[in-house]
């Protein structure tokens, strides 16, 4: 388990990184925290010809309030999400979900941008981005910066809308405001494992009824998905245990997950419903408490 040979560049600025990446061509890969890429390289399941290491690009690590939300530099470490008061204040679900990523030694290196660009279908961060309705900024030397909305970002298993010459530079999460509550639920085989199924919900209340709801899931498809039918079903209704159950069934109805060695398709469908039910109840309670 030793990686194949590769060229290595450690640019000191984003401009330089974009330039190196453009020149290196399609065999190049961006190295962020390396907590997903390097295991694949050690197993020789990935063998990039050229690694462009972003760890020297200091400008990409900033976390700041911006545009009514939270802007997080791509190289911000996952461990900083757990400790940041700004994250806790603006997007609490993100702080909470971050603590479920691997183990703390992995989060000390793993980055927000790296997780989003890697697009593991069971990963926490792409699902939270989707649930929050956020977006990412990607940049290339040739075409400059562009925004990619969360629901456009992931295109399939470990596949994103990011072009080979582009670098994900920043993620933006809208602030959770008003009478809104969130919840994050996950089932994993062991503490710190990738989720078998995870669910993130945001419920916004208008008086006693649901004004709008977002239900996002991981581990149930080739990418993080929203359960649109269930979202629609609960909108305009008063939150209740029965409604959550109803939504859970609707979620099960709209999913056809693929099974793997850890859990079957049937399991993922069933438990997606369970977690959505729990997540809706918790999010509604938080919304009621916050309003």
């Amino acid at each position: 388990m030793k990686p194949s040979p590769f060229e290595y560049s450690a640019p000191a600025s984003l401009e330089e990184a974009l330039e190196v990446l453009a020149e290196a061509g399609s065999g190049a890969k961006v190295l962020a925290g390396g907590q997903s890429l390097v295991p694949l390289m050690n197993l020789r399941l990935a063998a990039p010809e050229h690694l462009v290491d972003l760890n020297g690009v200091g400008s990409l690590s900033e976390i700041r309030a911006d545009d009514g939300g939270l802007a997080i530099g791509a190289m911000a470490r996952q461990s900083t999400l757990e400790r940041s008061t700004l994250v806790e204040e603006l997007v609490p679900a993100l702080a909470h979900a971050a603590s479920h990523i691997g183990h703390f030694q992995v989060r000390n290196r793993g980055t927000v941008g790296g997780s989003l660009a890697h697009a593991d279908p069971t990963a926490e961060l792409p699902m939270i981005l989707l649930a929050a309705g956020g977006r990412v900024t990607v940049q290339s030397k040739a075409r400059g910066a562009r925004a990619v909305e969360a629901n456009d970002l992931v295109r399939g298993y470990f596949t994103t809308a990011i072009e080979p010459d582009e670098i994900l530079t920043e993620a933006w999460f809208p602030r959770l405001e008003g009478a809104a509550g969130w919840s994050f639920q996950e089932v994993a085989r062991r503490h710190g494992d990738f989720a078998l199924v995870a669910a993130a919900t945001v419920v916004r209340l208008d008086g006693d009824t649901v004004a709008d709801a977002v239900i996002a899931l991981a581990g149930v498809a080739d990418r993080p998905v929203r359960a649109a039918a269930a979202e629609e079903l609960i909108t305009g209704e008063a939150p209740s245990a029965a409604l959550a159950e109803h939504a859970a069934d609707a979620v099960r109805g709209e999913l056809s997950p693929t099974g793997d060695v850890h859990a079957s398709s049937e399991y993922r469908r069933e438990v997606a419903g369970v977690l959505v039910g729990r997540a809706l109840s918790e999010a509604a309670q938080r919304a009621q408490a916050g309003s």
Partner: peptide
């Protein structure tokens, strides 16, 4: 000062 996995870092990154 931070605990990390040394199997997932390249030596060049520790420059």
């Amino acid at each position: 000062g931070q605990a990390v996995r040394s199997c997932l870092l390249f030596a060049v990154q520790a420059q």
